[in-house]
Design a protein around this nucleic acid. Structure first.
Lengths: 346, 346
DNA sequence: CTGAAAGCGCTAACAG
DNA sequence: CTGTTAGCGCTTTCAG
């Protein structure tokens, strides 16, 4: 069993130099003479020295770490955003930790507290609201950037897409196919994201002169289970519709499962449009018509903004990314039962 | 704009006590007189003091944090294990961070290094191998516990299920239904998990006197995409089989998608068995026959072992949890096309 | 019950 | 190019 872990003093002693020189050798190798560096590196090697990050972080007053707090870690959408965040972080020597909010105030508070306690330098939020007490005193909030969502109670830099326009494009696609009874599986309606996509849905209906049927708007939480349960309920209640626009691919896929379980075929009986264009959208059968969001770019931009914010030299400004309607096989003209040619599978 | 964050000295000054008393008040409120506590809490409140965790961690030589490193964060299996880990951690005042290995040596090394640098106190691994260089000198590894998997190159406490027996039970179920041409979508065959389940598959075939066809064993990585692509390939190559045993639910679901895209129905044409019994298994259509693993218990046990290991008083010993075959609607007697009564949906 | 004082291990001026 | 030195902010003996 080896003894206690060696510290920088042990290395300095063994190499016959000062601790400052050891520190310098490790952090700025070009600032020490070649033979000194060699002596130090030998001692480091021999002792198996690993610098203690705890001490470094305390001294530097920065952990070079950012927490990415997502709404629901089981939604693959966030994983792709995470990759973009990580990429930007790596380029700048930052680390990224991911947290799962699970739509739970306690968990959200926990992560905010962690940053206030300097566990990390900043927080990238992918959630739609903050526990009330954090709205009170903005000065007590740590550095925050919001990605993909928007939080109305605080004023922080945000990167997202034009959700209203995107939702509208999705519903216009269905209308162009002849659908008029269109169900919307929405996000939480007291949050920006749910509201914006609902607004786009309504705008498309209104422009086509279709009166909107409140019974066809169902609020979910973007999860697979919500999509499934809401549609199962709607069918049980006897709701009639020929198409569904879901505010996430996950809900769209859950909806398709529920439809199948009731003997309804997609797209022959019901057309379905999702949102996000996650990888799974092109892998399910039928491949999902959906709205593409540049997930990686959103993550990259959010982390870049965070770094700007932390460096203090720049006040980042909001960014809006474009979206694109991707038509695959889950939508079909009303009443038509012959398939279009397949495309879009991986 | 508030000034710099207040530290414990500011609080002490304002409350008219020493920093030791402030520290005590926050950590052991019962060890200070009532009125002193009140004065201190007032100052804390007024200043908005948040103790700096960086300093605390350095002083205590423990961050009360553990990293859970998983094979692939997009597999929901790990999320449920994570919940168990988190539960045990919370009870003991620990924090949990999740890392994604993505089957990449560099990423794995990165997380091991993070722990060696004392970013966290220990590492719970849910991966099947370590980069070679870590096998060399076990003394240089941080405290490790392995969950659900097993790593042959290092000797560390492990919690898992009897994978051989579980896989055997799955395949015996298919054999009992009359299937004899059974494809196995395995895990990586140079790792314990892939190997153990393959062994169970072979044992079941051998016991039934079925010669095994190497062309029907396909090695994947437990992911949705692997299940899809391997089965698509197999069909393209003209492989014949009436059933599939996949080493994960994700691969089973990917396989079902591939089958459907080629016009094959599940379970009418092909029976499919998964492994894990993740939530999605009961939500897909058809609901998946699969092996249930007590995911939460595995996570809870792994974290409990880690805490024992870190406390130093106990050397934890390996644990093995039981599994259970859950029969749902994705398997059917060979040649039969009428459905059994549905069950197992959420 | 409370205060003084000694660090945890490292980095970054500042001198030399 | 290298060493000396002064902390980062907190916790915890040890006295009182």
């Amino acid at each position: 069993m080896a003894g206690a872990a060696p510290n920088i003093r042990d290395v300095a002693q063994r190499a016959g130099v000062s601790t400052a020189t050891v520190s310098r050798t490790l952090a700025h190798p070009d600032k020490v003479r070649e033979d000194t560096r060699q002596k130090v590196m030998e001692a480091v090697e021999a002792l198996g020295f690993v610098p203690n990050d705890r001490a470094r972080v305390l001294r530097r007053q920065s952990s070079q770490t950012v927490i990415l707090l997502v709404r629901d870690i089981s939604n693959p959408f966030y994983l792709d955003v995470y990759k973009g965040v990580e990429e930007a972080a790596f380029d700048a020597g930052y680390k990224v930790l991911m947290g799962d909010a699970r739509d739970d105030d306690e968990r959200i508070s926990h992560y905010i507290e962690a940053v206030r306690e300097r566990h990390a330098d900043g927080l990238i939020l992918m959630i739609g609201r903050l526990p009330d007490r954090f709205g009170e005193d903005p000065a007590r909030l740590p550095p925050i950037v919001v990605a993909s969502e928007a939080i109305r109670t605080i004023d922080v830099p945000t990167v997202k897409v034009d959700n209203v326009a995107a939702a509208r494009a999705a519903v216009e696609h269905l209308i162009a196919l002849g659908h008029r009874q269109i169900c919307h599986i929405a996000g939480p309606l007291d949050e920006y994201l749910g509201e914006a996509r609902l607004e786009g849905y309504r705008a498309a209906l209104a422009a086509a002169g279709i009166g909107d049927d409140p019974g066809l708007v169902l609020a979910g939480d973007f999860s697979l289970g919500a999509g499934h349960d809401l549609v199962a309920d709607l069918i049980a209640r006897g709701g009639t519709f020929s198409a569904i626009f879901a505010a996430s691919d996950q809900m769209a896929i859950g909806a398709i499962t529920a439809l199948r379980q009731r003997g309804l075929r997609v797209p022959e009986d019901i057309s379905v449009v999702g949102f996000d264009d996650t990888l799974i959208a092109s892998m399910v059968d039928p491949a999902l018509t959906t709205i593409h969001q540049p997930r990686r770019d959103i993550g990259f931009a959010a982390m870049t903004m965070m770094i700007e914010r932390l460096s203090g030299v720049v006040t980042p400004t909001d960014r809006v990314f474009p979206t694109e309607l991707i038509v695959r096989n889950s939508t079909r003209p009303l009443g038509r039962t012959h398939p279009r040619q397949e495309r879009g599978h991986r």
